[in-house]
Design a protein around this nucleic acid. Sequence first.
DNA 1: ATCGTGGGATTGTTGAACGATTCTACGATA
DNA 2: TATCGTAGAATCGTTCAACAATCCCACGAT
Lengths: 223, 223
Amino acid sequence: MSTLAQGKADLERASTAQKVADMLRERVLDGELAPGLRLSEEAIGGALGVSRNTLREAFRLLTRDRLLVHEHSRGVFVRRPSGDDVRDLYAARRVIECGALRLWNDVTEAQREAVRAPVRQAVARAEKNDWTRAGQANIQFHRAIVGLARSTRLSDESDRLFAELMLAFRVAQEINDFYQTYVPWNRRIVELLNNGAVDQAVDQLLEYFDAAEQDLVGRLEAE
Amino acid sequence: MSTLAQGKADLERASTAQKVADMLRERVLDGELAPGLRLSEEAIGGALGVSRNTLREAFRLLTRDRLLVHEHSRGVFVRRPSGDDVRDLYAARRVIECGALRLWNDVTEAQREAVRAPVRQAVARAEKNDWTRAGQANIQFHRAIVGLARSTRLSDESDRLFAELMLAFRVAQEINDFYQTYVPWNRRIVELLNNGAVDQAVDQLLEYFDAAEQDLVGRLEAE
DNA sequence: ATCGTGGGATTGTTGAACGATTCTACGATA
DNA sequence: TATCGTAGAATCGTTCAACAATCCCACGAT
């Protein structure tokens, strides 16, 4: 059964543009292509061995994901989120994640466990000072919160928001610093949820967003 | 001042692909291009006088907006939303709009008025049996609710959800029928908001979503 | 120091080309 | 008669080459 699904996934393999977009997405998210950098069609296309047309399709995909920005007749650039972008981003997250978290009592146990597990993982990794992977667990935590809503459209959009936020973190050079404070915060949220105090958990999540936004915006607008 | 902004908007005019995409979007939304229809690259490109490459970029844009679906080596088709799509759509709307509506007491008076006005408009148009434009006012109502969050990202995504929902309405041939029931519903919601009963307004909104989803899914899965 | 004004580089769009994939219709086989 | 397989037509995926439009930069004029 799973082999069938696997085979189908292979059959419906991505187009060249899709594959190029995936590769570029990784490079952007891991910082190899720094925010603000201009991506030359000729240089990238030559390096990857694809034609300009195909490359431009890949650019369109990433532009739609807000990882790249397109300026007419000037080219595409790796996005450099501004303070206003971050405020916009957190306004969206507040609505989506708090709204989804309020569904806590209406969802399956499997969904609830998907929220708890990443927090345990983040705690364990934080104790080992593995902040990179602790950060990944944090994202999983928030993805699972959105997942409570059971809407692929909402989850997909949230993934785009998370990716954009990663860029903002990079610009603010805040990859590891801030992660130390959110771990206990998430722990508290899960604790409140387990005690049935959903409203208080939502309040905690809101406070977390306030703190994170303020910190990030501050660093972004400092320069 | 506004003329300057207007001029700037004109200067930063869309690319050819963007303009083609806008034109096709209209045709899809007003039903001229029916759900399920296949869009031939050659036919459309020839009729519009643009090259295949440019047209394909336009298709990509609309695919990203979920108005078209792309099938490898088969072409692009006007999306035909399924019952599952509608369920997914409403799950997202529940989270977004209810979450945004809870901000009622934290926003400016101008934002609140932007929510009330479309309802008055819808009532007036409904009395004149102008259901098409009453439906447009309804969408404005829901757009304004999302606007309470003050996030362009959230508003943009919601616009995509609304557009997709319009397609579902078309498939269900429910353009005008259902509109008669939501007008009084929206009226009640605004009344509750004006009385400061935000939580009850959210509950009413949820019930409205339940009813609308059930009705739409029922018609969609009937065929 | 500011303001044209070029040349050079890059993007925007087109058209043609060819392999790969899908669709269609026809005929073979049971 | 119904199913299956196959050849041919139509369409898509991708590349390449070309040229106009636009932007960037440096140089010189005022």
